[in-house]
Design a protein around this nucleic acid. Structure first.
Lengths: 237, 237
DNA sequence: TCAAAAGTGTTCGCTATACACCCATGG
DNA sequence: CCATGGGTGTATAGCGAACACTTTTGA
C-alpha cells in the first residue's frame, strides 16, 4: 500500500494517498538563577513573519524524531547530546496554513551558560516564561503543554539539575523548583529536605559576591541518586 | 515549500520532499476484576501476517490524531467517546519494513463489559498483560511505554476509575491499583486511605455471590474529586 | 465449627509544615 | 548597629505502614 514512486519529473515524491509533512519543534528551557526561560527564534518568512516561534524543522527520512530534535537543537544552541524528552505530537489539521503539518514536540533542558546562540543581535532570544509574546502557529499551546509536562516530570526524576550549572547554591535550586512548580517553599524546610535526600554534595567553595553572606556551593550527586532510586525511592515535592 | 500537487496520473499525491506515512495505534486497556488486559488484533496480511498487533490505522488528512484514534477505537470496540490519551510517537526509520511510517500512539481505558468486539471467534482478543505474545512491528515497545505512562499518570488523575464498571467493590479497586502499579497494598490501609480521600460514594447494594461475605458497592464521586482538586490536592499512591 | 473474605479501628514512626535563632556582611 | 541574607535547629500535626478484632457465610 502507498508505494513510494519518484516521478519522472524529478524532485517529486508521489504517493497513492496524501501524506502530511512531519516536523520536530523544540521547547528549549533554561534557568537564569531566578526564572525559567525559553529560547525562541524570530521568523524571517511568511507565514507569521516577524513573530517569535519555537525552533524546529522537517524530519529527515532516515532519522528518528529524537535525532531530528537533537539536530535542530545543535544548530540552534551548539549543544551536543542535550537532555531532551518528547512530550506531545500536535496534529490539528489547520495548525499550519500552508499544508498539513504535524509536529512532534520535544522539550530540552539546557544550561543557559553553555549556549552560544540566543544572544541579542541574533534572531534567537531567551524569554522569561511570563514575558513570552504571542507565538506563531499553535506554539503558545505547545509551550503550555511543555510547561505542564515538565511540572509533572519533576515528580519522578530530578530533571531540574539539567538546568543548573555544575555548581549551584541551595537558593538557586529552590528558585528553580519554585519556578517549575509555581509554588513557594519555606527556605528552611527546603534545606532540610535536600539534606535528608542526600542527593547533594557540598563543595569547598563558597560564592555569591554582591550579597550579604557567602553561600555554600553544591553539586548534584548523580551516583547517590541512582543508588537511592534502586532501593525504591520516590521523589516528592 | 513542499507544495502538494495531484499528479496527472490520478490517485497520486506528489511532494517536493519525501513524506512519511502517519498512523495512530491504540493500546486499549481493560480490567477483568483481577488483571489488566489489552485488546489485540491478529494481522491478516503481510508483513507479520498472523502476529498479534495493536489496532490502528492511517490518519486522514482532515482529522487530528485524537479523532483518528477515537475512530479506530470505535471501529474496534464500538465505544464512542472513550477515555484516550496520547502518550508517545514512534518514529524509528525502519519500524515498518514497507515504508517510512510514524505512529502516534494512544492508550485507551475502557470497561471490558461495554466492549462488543474482542470475543473469541473474532480476530480480536483480550490478553492479560503477562500473557501478551510477541507482537508485530515495534508494538511490544509501544505497549511497554503505554504501561509505564499509565503507571505515572495514575499519580495525578484517578484514571483507574475509567476501567471499572459504574459500581465496584473496594477489593476490585484495590486489585486495579495493584495491577497498574505492580505493588501490593495492605487491604485495611487501602480502605482507610480511600475513606479519607472522600472520593468514593457507598451505594445501598451489596454483592459478590460465590464469595464468603457480601461486599459493599461503591461509585466514584467525580464531583467530589473535582472539588478536592480545586483546593489543591495531590493524589498519592 | 472452622476457614476465608470483608468491615472497621488503633498504634507508631516518619515527614511535611510552621516557626526561631544565630552568624556574617555591607551600609 | 542594624537590616538582609544565609546556615541550622525544634515542635506539632497528619499521613503511611504495620497490625487486631469482629462479622458473615459456605463447607
Amino acid at each position: 500500500m502507498d508505494e513510494l514512486n519518484k516521478s519522472e519529473e524529478g524532485k517529486k515524491y508521489c504517493y497513492k494517498y496524501p501524506h502530511p509533512s512531519v516536523t520536530t519543534d523544540c521547547v528549549i528551557f533554561g534557568f537564569d538563577g531566578a526564572k525559567l526561560r525559553v529560547l525562541l527564534v524570530q521568523r524571517g518568512v511568511e507565514p507569521y513573519k516577524g513573530r517569535w516561534a519555537l525552533p524546529g524543522g522537517f524530519l529527515k527520512m532516515d532519522e528518528c524524531a529524537e535525532d531530528g530534535a537533537l539536530r535542530e537543537l545543535q544548530e540552534e544552541t551548539g549543544l551536543e547530546g542535550a537532555y531532551i524528552r518528547q512530550f506531545h505530537t500536535f496534529t490539528a489539521p489547520e495548525r499550519d496554513p500552508r499544508e498539513r503539518v504535524i509536529t512532534i514536540a520535544y522539550y530540552a533542558l539546557v544550561r543557559m551558560q553553555e549556549v552560544k546562540g540566543g544572544d541579542d543581535a541574533d534572531d534567537a532570544r531567551w524569554f522569561a516564561l511570563d514575558e513570552v509574546p504571542q507565538l506563531a502557529f499553535d506554539h503558545d499551546q505547545i509551550l503550555r503543554k511543555a510547561e505542564q509536562t515538565l511540572r509533572q516530570q519533576i515528580h519522578f526524576e530530578p530533571v531540574g539539575f539539567e538546568l543548573l550549572p555544575e555548581q549551584f547554591t541551595i537558593k538557586e535550586l529552590q528558585n528553580l523548583y519554585e519556578a517549575i512548580l509555581g509554588i513557594r517553599f519555606d527556605r528552611r524546610n527546603f534545606y532540610n529536605k535536600m539534606k535528608r535526600l542526600e542527593m547533594l554534595e557540598q563543595l569547598d567553595g563558597t560564592v555569591n559576591p554582591s550579597q550579604k553572606k557567602e553561600a555554600f556551593l553544591f553539586r548534584f550527586n548523580k551516583a547517590k541518586y541512582e543508588e537511592l532510586k534502586q532501593k525504591g525511592f520516590r521523589l516528592e515535592f
